[in-house]
């Protein structure tokens, strides 16, 4: 019998638990003391084929990730070699003219600003919902209610776009007018009449779209807050809010940070909802409420069909920037989660 090492394999080391997929992100448990008897065994052909297949598909995933980076880089360098403008600072996207002139300044600004607005709006609400589900809702309602929030994630992004463009935009005009009346002097919140197809609207829409992921990750973290601390605080006479502030929130802080970064990663790459709602222009407007601006993903989807060969390469170059950006944000979020796991 040469397969006894199964007893030491990963599942045995970890207690089975209903953790969310996003949280169990760390490495598989390290194996101890099983490398000793590899030499004398005769491995059955079936086993060898099966191991080869499953290891092969693992490697395939790595190859795909590497290929994404390589192919995008190849096309992007091709585009950059033809760019007559400065790729980082040019306020223009004329990739199909001869000579091509394009730069990502406006796109980077729009992407970062709309995603930050989305995070500012979504994270407090998501933390509230997570607390609601983990600590406030009646216990029997908690599961159905969290399912309702998950339904928000199931709605396709294009439907959000349609709803945003045909329902949300007409309804936001009033609110923006109010902003303009009272905060218009700041310049940032000035609003001149017109459809509210602006970066701020995108921010609101993205906030709704990233709410479920931020909620579900924070919820899992709050659930894991040590029960003993909570009970100790209750025994000292603390109210429920004091328990949360003293025992739950400090414990969950890093989890909430990584949850919001995962949400940020989603918001950065969102395409179709932005492409339907935003009315793009290659200007950086000081007002967030006025139409204009653009994001990486939106620009790729909107200008793809009119693009020639160089135009497509230019879009791929901007896609590479987006890829690196999301990679950094997501990688950082995963690092925080993994570090947290080691300590708790």
């Amino acid at each position: 019998m040469n397969d006894m090492d199964i007893a030491n394999s990963a599942p045995a080391d970890r207690p089975p638990g209903p953790a969310s997929p996003d949280l169990t992100a760390a490495q598989p448990a390290p194996a101890q003391g099983i490398r000793t008897r590899k030499s004398k065994t005769t491995v059955r052909p079936g086993d060898r084929i099966f191991l080869g297949l499953s290891r092969g598909s693992g490697i395939l995933l790595l190859v795909i990730m590497a290929a994404i980076a390589v192919f995008l880089t190849v096309r992007a360098t091709h585009a950059l070699s033809q760019d007559e403008g400065n790729f980082l600072t040019t306020f223009e996207w004329s990739a199909n003219t001869d000579p091509p002139v394009f730069g990502i300044a406006v796109l980077a600004f729009g992407t970062v600003v709309s995603s930050l607005i989305a995070m500012l709006l979504a994270v407090p609400v998501a933390v509230g919902i997570a607390l609601f589900i983990s600590h406030y809702a009646p216990r029997r309602l908690a599961a159905p209610l969290s399912y309702v929030i998950d339904l928000l994630a199931a709605v396709p992004s294009i439907v959000y776009g349609l709803w945003g463009a045909l329902f949300l935009v007409p309804h936001l005009g009033g609110l923006y007018g109010w902003f303009d009346t009272y905060f218009g002097w700041t310049g940032v919140l000035a609003y001149h009449d017109g459809a509210a197809r602006s970066l701020f609207t995108i921010g609101i829409l993205l906030a709704i779209m990233i709410l479920p992921i931020v909620t579900s990750v924070s919820r899992e973290v709050f659930r894991q807050a040590p029960k003993m601390h909570e009970e100790a605080a209750l025994a000292l006479g603390a109210t429920r809010w004091e328990v949360i502030r003293m025992a739950v929130l400090p414990f969950g802080r890093s989890g909430v940070i990584s949850a919001s970064m995962l949400g940020l990663g989603r918001a950065l790459g969102e395409t179709m909802a932005v492409a339907t709602v935003l009315s793009p222009s290659f200007l950086i407007s000081t007002s967030l409420l006025d139409p204009g601006g653009g994001t990486f993903a939106q620009n790729i989807a909107s200008s793809f069909k009119e693009s020639g060969e160089t135009g497509k390469d230019a879009l791929i170059a901007s896609g590479l920037v987006l890829f690196v950006l999301t990679l950094l944000v997501n990688g950082a979020a995963r690092m925080i989660i993994a570090r947290r796991k080691e300590f708790s």
Partner: peptide
């Protein structure tokens, strides 16, 4: 295995347009 786990996580975040 560690590399695969990490990159599966990263791959979850790859935007669909990319």
């Amino acid at each position: 295995a560690r590399a695969v786990t990490f990159f599966v996580d990263v791959m979850t975040g790859v935007p669909s347009i990319v």
